[in-house]
C-alpha cells in the first residue's frame, strides 16, 4: 500500500494513524501539510526515522519548496519526488489517503 499523508502531524492524527497501518513493503508519501513530518529537528523525526528502517518515505518537492523548506532540512533518506513520481508510486501500490 501507498500511505498518502496530507495533514501536518502537529495538528492531525493522519501521520500516526498511517504509521499504525503500515506494513512491510508499504511506502509513505508526505504531501501538502504532511511534509512537516519530514523536517529535521521536529518532534516526529524519531518516529519517521524509525519507520524508515523498514519502509521507504517520499515527499513532494512542490510542497516542500512552497513551504520554504530546503532539501537539506529534510530528514536523510526521505526521497524527494515530483508529481510524476507520485503517479509512479500509485501505479506500484494501492493508495490510502490519511487526512
Amino acid at each position: 500500500m501507498l500511505h498518502i499523508v496530507k495533514k501536518s502531524p502537529y495538528e492531525s492524527s493522519a501521520f500516526s494513524d498511517a504509521i499504525n497501518y503500515i506494513e512491510q513493503n508499504d511506502i509513505m508519501l508526505l504531501t501538502e501539510d504532511g511534509i512537516y513530518a519530514a523536517k529535521k529537528g521536529g518532534k516526529f523525526e524519531g518516529a519517521l526515522k524509525n519507520l524508515m528502517q523498514k519502509n521507504a518515505v517520499y515527499c513532494l518537492i512542490a510542497d516542500i519548496k512552497a513551504r520554504g523548506i530546503q532539501e537539506n532540512e529534510i530528514i536523510e533518506n526521505v526521497k524527494i519526488i515530483d508529481y510524476k513520481g507520485f503517479v509512479e508510486k500509485v501505479t506500484e501500490h494501492n493508495p490510502m489517503t490519511w487526512s
Binding site: M1, E23, N94, P95, S99
Partner: peptide
C-alpha cells in the same frame, strides 16, 4: 484488531476514506 484490519484493507480494490 488492527492487524486483522490491516490484512482486510489489503484485500480491497479501493479504499474510500
Amino acid at each position: 484488531d488492527r492487524n486483522t484490519l490491516k490484512q482486510k484493507m489489503r484485500e480491497m480494490k479501493a479504499l474510500l476514506p
